[in-house]
Design a protein around this nucleic acid. Structure first.
Lengths: 195, 195
DNA sequence: GTCTATAGAAGGATAGAC
DNA sequence: GTCTATCCTTCTATAGAC
């Protein structure tokens, strides 16, 4: 088991590098080295080169991160508490990794938004799946569908924005404050308050 | 006037490229071409190379964007309305530029957070200046200092996160929803409601 | 201050032996 | 499936003429 699938290792290493250094900041050479693989293997599994590898990594990372969010948010006593837990958990991970590991697709999303349509579409698909997935947790908690989607968007934008400020400042302040307000907004929706 | 300062042109062009393509995505060659300058000029004005140019561009862009925010937020009938206007204005700019022009430092901030300490510090300084500047508008509106800072952080994280989703999806939905909730949170603070 | 040429490294990608 | 060698481009940076 010390030797997992080569393809699997390439995907895992690339996901980690994208999360920390972005798409342009992660060289194929670095990927090959860290994954203990070769150029031949990369192009064997991903004939479309770095772009194809990128698309598959974004899809995988997006799904894994959604599952993590669903587990934490859905596992709490109520969704508002769950949202708060997710922000605090993200803050803890960020701190423990030396402010390396935040959102697995955010940096790439901004880098490729206006330069690579295939990758841009992949990031858009991931965000949409998050909105749908988190929104479903809110509707399950009794919130109307339309409002549930809006809430999901607000919660996701809050954590993405907080990641930017927290990584730049190397403090968890933004994640903590954003988490408090995001949880409060969800709680207000549970209480049936407008707006 | 057709020929502004060479240094000025380099700074302006680099700021635009950083905003659209990020730090790693903006080549010195591209900068030189777009600014109608030469490599010699770039290294004459910025002996520290791309990094020094980057730091100066981040500082400038950060200050200009803060001034824009202060004008819009502070120019409205109240700060909650001002916040709403800023989100809607940002959405309009984004739409009109084909989803190119969002935050001038966000992409760079994520790219350099774990790779270049000088640039990371520059982005952190910019965000801190925004928190202070926007927070001052809130205290001027009668909100307590501590809460004003928290609100500023929440508003800034909301717009940064919304930029990510909006650029990826090529819709203004995230900016509109985030703007609505950010304005509501500020309004609640004005009304003295807890948190 | 400006320009051109070029160095030297790193980028993605490919071919062909094994 | 894996590996190595290599191609071609792009990148940042520098030297030296003007």
């Amino acid at each position: 088991m010390a030797k997992a699938d080569t393809k699997e290792r390439i995907l895992e290493v690339t996901a980690e590098l994208f999360q920390r250094y972005g798409y342009n900041g992660s060289g194929l050479k670095q990927i090959v080295t860290n994954a203990n693989a070769t150029f031949g293997s990369v192009y064997h599994f991903f004939p479309g080169g770095k772009q194809q590898l990128g698309v598959e990594v974004l899809r995988r990372s997006g799904q894994m991160y959604l599952e993590l969010a669903e587990t934490i948010v859905g596992g709490a006593s109520d969704v508002a508490t769950g949202v708060r837990h997710f922000f605090l958990g993200a803050a803890e991970v960020l701190r423990q990794t030396g402010y390396l590991d935040a959102c697995p697709i955010e940096t790439v999303a901004l880098e490729v938004a206006s330069t690579n349509e295939a990758l841009r579409q992949a990031t858009a698909d991931v965000f949409e799946s998050w909105i749908t997935g988190i929104g479903a947790l809110f509707t399950a908690a009794g919130i109307g569908e339309e409002k549930a989607r809006d809430l999901a968007i607000v919660v996701i934008t809050a954590i993405e924005g907080a990641f930017v400020l927290s990584r730049a400042a190397r403090t968890t302040e933004a994640l903590e404050r954003a988490g408090t307000y995001a949880a409060a907004i969800v709680q207000a929706a549970l209480d049936g308050i407008e707006p």
